[in-house]
Structures are given as structure tokens and as C-alpha cells.
Amino acid sequence: MDKIRILVIGLEEAEVNALKQSLNFNYLMVHYDLVPQVKLIEGQLYVESTSVPGKYLLVNKVIFHGIYKDDVDFITLLAMWNGPCLPNALGMMDLRQRIPGLARALSVSKFSGIKRGMVIGEQDYSTETEVVAKWGIWHCGEDKNKFTGDWTSTETSVIEEFIDGEAVRIMIVGDKSWQIRLTGDTWLKSIHNEGSWEMEIDQELLLDSKAIAQHFNLQTVGVDYIIGKNGERYLLEVNHIPNVTVFPFVNKAFIEYAVEWMVS
């Protein structure tokens, strides 16, 4: 029986070791911290060996976790391969570039009520209300700027009204889900702030997030919303690679799901 080789990219050492311990001798694992050299040859995926430079190994499954400067072509190659990939490669490809991904997600979400603007390249923008400009293809955003009045972009940007409220993330791993409160010392909120933690889940946001996950065929996803002080909810962003290491309950669920996925 041929062994099944699993390529794991971006997971931290603790997660990689946990996955390895759950596999029997029928499985091999190749782990890279960064995007490796790969080739797609006649529908088969190959990755460069970690021990023998220039030697390429046949890959049967891929687990991908991370956002890298040079990963767009890599994810596209995985989508072209169309083999077993966690998360689904086509869904990752559709969401990888933040602004096009947002446009796709807004077509699915019930909570798309923010009236957004957009500028291409270097352009002047003027507003009488408080807004936030977000630019860059990174999901964390290359940068953000809150302003009223005149502003000049340095690159293609989305501008959305600033909503004072509570930022939350619906996190989905397989059939498990959580709502995470995002916190921060300023108007910028993050899962990495010390106060961020699980909270009671909003069932309407969960249904919306599940619809988005199903649309992009993603097994894991993080969907960010803002809940205004008036109770209105708005979609902010869909994270195709949500962090699974910050919260122990998410980390445990991800390891369990990934193990089941690998051996299925």
C-alpha cells in the first residue's frame, strides 16, 4: 500500500506535532513554515523535499494555514490541482485578495448595509462624515486610516462609514462555531488583544457566517462583523485563514477536525 503524503504549511510546531502523533505508519508528513516550491504535473501535485534540494515528492493532501506575501499563485495552483485541501483551495483563492473577496462575500451576506466607497490608485477623497479607509490585499489590512474631510489614497482602497460599536468574529471549524469578542485600546480591534474571548453567539450572525462558508466551500472560516450601538449588524470581512492558535478551544477543535480530515 502506497503511503499518503500530507503537505502541511504554516502551522506552528505544537500543532504539527499533534497531527503527527495522530497518524499511523501509512502516512507521511512534509512540513514547511513558509510557502514551499511546488509543481503541478499532469494533475499531480509535487513538493520539494525538505532534506534533498531539487527532489520533488508526490503530495496527496494539503493543510494550509497562513497568509504570505507570495501565496496568491500558490493558492491558485492548489485550486488548479483540485485535490484534498484544508481549507478548500478555490474558496481561499476567491477570498485571498481582501477587496475582491469582500465584494464576493457581500453578495452573500444579509448584513451588507454599510455604504462603501472605493478609490483606485492615488486619488483624493472627501467626506463630511467619519469614515475608515482600508487598503492592501492583506486581510489584516496593510493599513487603515480614520478621517473626516479630505484624504488622499496611496493605493486602491475601500472607504466605509465608521460605526461605533462592538466588533465580533464568528469562527467556524467544521461543525463547531464560536463568537469571539474583538477588543483593543483604540478603535482598532483584534483577536490578539488580551480582552478578546468567547461570548454568547448571535444565531443570525452564525447563520449568515454558515451561508458564507458554504458559498465558498470553506471548512474553516472567520467572519468579522460590527454591531452598532443601535443593534444593527454589518459584515466587515471574511478571513479565509482565521487564526486557530490564539484560543485554546478553537485550537483543540481544529486539531481534532484536521486529524479526522487527514485520515478520511
Rank of each mutant, 00 (worst) to 15 (best):
N193S: 06
R104T: 00
T129N: 15
D124C: 10
H215S: 05
L28D: 03
N145L: 13
Y32R: 09
G222F: 09
W151V: 02
P36W: 08
Y56W: 02
I63F: 06
V47E: 07
K110F: 04
K20T: 11
T245Y: 10
V246A: 11
G231K: 07
G149V: 04
L19V: 02
E161Q: 11
T152S: 15
K189E: 00
Y234D: 07
T76G: 05
F74S: 10
I212C: 05
H192L: 01
Q214H: 01
L205D: 09
N17E: 05
L102R: 08
F111R: 01
P84I: 07
W138A: 15
V259D: 14
L106G: 00
L235M: 13
V173W: 05
S107I: 06
I67F: 02
D70G: 07
T220C: 05
S264N: 10
Y46V: 01
L206Y: 11
M92E: 03
I9F: 00
A167N: 03
K229P: 01
V38C: 14
G195M: 02
Y27M: 05
W261C: 12
I241N: 04
V250Y: 00
L7G: 01
W178H: 00
A103E: 15
C85D: 00
I67P: 01
V131W: 00
R104L: 03
E198N: 05
F64R: 01
K134Y: 04
Y27R: 03
G184P: 14
R98P: 00
M93R: 06
L205P: 11
P242M: 07
W81E: 07
K39R: 04
P100I: 11
I120M: 15
S157K: 08
D150C: 14
G195V: 01
A103P: 08
M93K: 11
L106Y: 13
G43F: 07
K252N: 09
L86N: 08
E13A: 00
A133L: 14
I9M: 10
T156Q: 09
K134F: 03
K69D: 15
D73A: 10
P100D: 04
P84L: 10
A213R: 06
V131I: 06
V158N: 11
H65T: 03
L77K: 12
G174F: 10
M1E: 12
A79E: 14
G149W: 06
W261L: 07
G91F: 01
G91M: 04
E166F: 03
M80Q: 05
L207I: 04
S153C: 11
M199K: 01
V221H: 10
V173H: 09
F247P: 10
G83Y: 09
E130V: 14
F216K: 02
G228K: 10
R233V: 06
I170T: 11
D33H: 11
L236R: 10
V35K: 13
R98D: 02
V131F: 06
Q44E: 13
D73R: 03
L106C: 06
K144M: 15
L7K: 08
P248R: 07
G117C: 09
D71L: 02
V173F: 02
N82K: 08
K3E: 13
T148Q: 14
D164Y: 11
V72L: 14
N251A: 02
F147A: 09
L45D: 08
G222A: 10
L28C: 06
K189W: 02
T127E: 07
A211R: 14
